[in-house]
Amino acid sequence: MSDLNQEMAARYKNNFLKEIEEQAEMGEWVKMCMQCGLCSGSCPTNFHSGWDHPPQEIFMLIRAGKREEVLNAQGMYMCTSCYNCYVRCPRKVPVTHVMHGIAEYAYRIGRAPKNQPTMHLSKTFWTNATKHGRVNEVQLTQSLYFKDGIGAGIKKAMEMQKEALGLVKAGRLNPMEALGMGHKCKDVKGIHAMLAKAEELEAKNKAAKA
């Protein structure tokens, strides 16, 4: 069977739905969506560039067995974790988590696009936070701004200057963080130990599921 035919035969079959249920965190919720569209409409990002499929549509694509279209989609990386959809969904689908679950799965199997901005943010955020035991906001911002090169970074930083100064004045941003100083976490070691344990448990869980 050709790829196309195979894809046709898999339409509206459970194969891909099952794959998502087994592999993606919270994937078992995909089947519960009733296609009301509330999640898509609730999203404050207004689906700017890059949002090819909103959550409700991704869920339908999964159920329609459209594996390629879903794994190639950008939508699941665009979620900003505002949880609007999560709290409103009439089916109590934890939409935010499902989106992340699908994104994480696509990344895990090597289908996530390179330099996808949200993906980059998550990774940077994670590295940053786990390293210090808390987020070093200035370093985080810097690494985000400079992700597309020095020029772009400076431009972005200039644009945001006013906001940054405001935050500094309000005591919400400590410029010393740029040097790795400023607010500190009390027990970085403890946190590292905790994270190691969590990783171990997670791995076990995944092994059990598969």
């Binding site: 509206y12 459970n14 519960m32 296609q35 329609a64 089916r91």
Partner: peptide, 14 residues
Amino acid sequence: FYRAAQNKGVIFSK
């Protein structure tokens, strides 16, 4: 009943 069916994996589409 509809929800129970979804939960059992029945696929619904318009």
